[in-house]
Amino acid sequence: MLRKVAIGLTLIAFGVMFFAAAVTIRPFGEPPSAMDDYIIEHSQQETGANNAVSAVVFDYRGYDTLGEATILFAAATAVVMLFRKRKDEASD
């Protein structure tokens, strides 16, 4: 019973939060800062790339991409370490 009440209260709280987020969202095409327009207007001139998304990912926010690459490296390293054939296990 208590469990059901707790689950219901959690769901209601999440519903209120999502509803509040939905009604306070900004209308389409009105960015909250001037940065969006800055990137659209200056990315071709500053980075030379016609693809503004690539300009953001690899130039303006290159540090984030470095983190992404690090995550992929760690994932591949962990999987290869766990699943590789070991010579000392081959005799088992």
Partner: peptide, 12 residues
């Protein structure tokens, strides 16, 4: 075009 962006694309 793109400066280092194509090279970084190749690296990634």
């Amino acid at each position: 075009t793109g400066g280092t962006i194509p090279l970084m694309n190749v690296a990634v």
